[in-house]
């Protein structure tokens, strides 16, 4: 790994960008106009976070790469998002399961990063934490409503949760990147986010009458650039313009 700070910023930014791209796929495909606008808002918040993190990453790297370069000119193995973020939308239950699992992790993460020794990171986190708080409220509302809804909505919500559960351990697994940066107060040790995450999930699942899944087939690798089959399909669409017309802008 190169500069740990650069890698850390890409991990944070890639989570935002790839999940935003997934949510963006839903725009104009949601069951109603209201939810269409809601997911677009989530995606835009995440893109805003990604932009700030990429801009800083480019600065830290010092090779003149811009936020656009980092978003559009990297290939699969150079993305460090958690594999949870790249999982398909599936049905609305699966989308909301993925969102809940992510939001319940991202909020305490951003909350802790507001105290980062790195002023740029604490600044980005200060803005992001407000957005994340709303994102979590939004996903909790849907998970509870669908879980504690009709027989069909309950079945789908549980299935979505079961399908996404195996990508959650990775969120709390750090390596030398986080360890190095956490020692100097810049990063957060991901394992410290497990307790607040578990507390949120436990409460939400109880309200939603959903079962906490047990899935020993945990799958990670995203933080090291080893992705599931899905990221390879997201990138050509997201990066289409730069792949077809390198250097093009509008």
């Amino acid at each position: 790994m190169s500069d740990p700070l650069l890698t850390y910023l890409l991990r944070l930014g890639d989570d935002s960008l790839i999940l935003a791209q997934r949510l963006g796929e839903l725009v104009s495909h949601q069951p109603d106009l209201e939810e269409d606008i809601a997911v677009a808002n989530l995606a835009l918040d995440l893109i805003g976070q990604a932009r700030a993190l990429y801009a800083y990453a480019g600065e830290v790297e010092g090779r003149g790469r811009t936020e656009d370069d980092l978003a559009f000119l990297r290939d699969e193995r150079e993305f460090f998002n958690a594999v949870l973020c790249e999982q398909p939308n599936g049905d609305f239950g699966q989308t909301m399961a993925r969102q809940l699992l992510f939001d319940a992790y991202r909020l305490p993460l951003m909350d802790a990063l507001t105290a980062s020794a790195d002023e740029t990171i604490s600044g980005v986190a200060g803005k992001a934490v407000k957005e994340c708080r709303y994102h979590l409220q939004h996903s909790i509302t849907w998970v509870v409503r669908l879980g504690d809804g009709t027989e069909e909505s309950h079945r789908r919500m549980q299935a979505g949760l079961d399908a996404m559960w195996r990508f959650t351990d990775e969120l709390f697994t750090g390596d030398e990147v986080e360890a190095t940066l956490a020692a100097s107060g810049i990063a957060v040790d991901p394992s410290s986010l497990r307790d607040p995450w578990e507390a949120t999930i436990k409460e939400v699942l109880a309200r939603a009458t959903l079962e906490r899944p047990v899935d020993p087939r945990q799958r990670g690798g995203g933080r090291q650039g080893m992705h599931s089959e899905h990221l390879g399909h997201i990138l050509p669409e997201m990066q289409f313009l730069q792949r077809a017309y390198p250097g093009q802008s509008w």
């Binding site: 209201e34 939810e35 606008i37 809601a38 808002n41 709303y134 939004h138 509302t141 849907w142």
Partner: peptide, 20 residues
């Protein structure tokens, strides 16, 4: 006005639709 299944969701939708 907007459509929503319950008051909580309606409030969140209103936040997204009318106060962006």
């Amino acid at each position: 006005s907007l459509h929503a299944p319950d008051a909580e969701t309606a409030t969140q939708h209103a936040r997204d639709v009318y106060t962006r």
